[in-house]
Simulated assay, not measured.
Amino acid sequence: MQKTPMTGKGLLQLEDELRKLRSEERPAVIRAIAEARSHGDLSENAEYHAARERQSFIEGRIQELEELISTAEVIEPSSLSGSHIKFGATVCLVDEDTDKEITYQIVGLHEADIKQSKISISSPLAKSLIGKQEGDTVSVPAPGGDRTYEILSVKFI
């Protein structure tokens, strides 16, 4: 069984989503199906078909979350150290074309969120950064052409 690396916060988010699906979403969709059934003919009942489709999505997501949680390998960034970039590192970069500074944390695939400056370990940028250290320059393939970044700092927080 292959382990899925993630942070403790990422695991908590998945567990919260699973708990909500089991305790709120699943019972709500069961009630919606029962309500739609009471309306009679199921062959032309759009409410019934929509509720069944929603139920299918919820059950699939529950199975996916259960598998992710069971294979999770929690890695706490604050317990890591060193000068080389690895999973959990918070990296400050400067784009050499625009001189714009950006900071990202490298996290697991299922907790990546660019709005929170969290990038997946499997993203092209993270793959380029792994193993590098402060002061190094990396080139990252992008749709508009390669982007070049200088690594300003590496922290494990």
Rank of each mutant, 00 (worst) to 15 (best):
E15Y: 08
K132V: 00
I151K: 00
V94D: 08
I85A: 07
E101W: 03
H39V: 11
D99T: 07
D113G: 07
E73G: 10
V74G: 03
E64C: 09
A34N: 13
K100Q: 11
I75Y: 10
S117G: 06
E67L: 12
S117C: 12
E150C: 05
M1E: 15
S81D: 09
G82H: 10
I151W: 01
R61W: 02
E150K: 15
D16Y: 01
R19E: 11
I121H: 09
K3G: 12
E15T: 11
T7V: 05
E101G: 02
L18V: 02
S128C: 08
I106T: 13
V140Q: 01
G40E: 08
L93K: 00
G40L: 14
F57D: 02
E35M: 03
A32C: 01
D95Q: 10
S128F: 05
P27M: 07
E47G: 10
A142H: 06
S38Y: 04
D113I: 08
D113A: 12
R19Y: 12
E47I: 01
S122H: 09
L80H: 06
S56L: 04
I62W: 04
R22A: 01
K3E: 14
Q13W: 06
I85V: 15
Q63P: 09
L125V: 06
G145P: 01
A89C: 12
H110T: 05
Q55S: 03
A50G: 03
R31K: 14
I102R: 00
L14Y: 10
E96Q: 13
A72S: 05
G8V: 03
Q105P: 14
E134Q: 14
A46E: 15
E111G: 11
E73T: 03
T103I: 03
Q105L: 12
E24M: 04
D41G: 06
E73V: 03
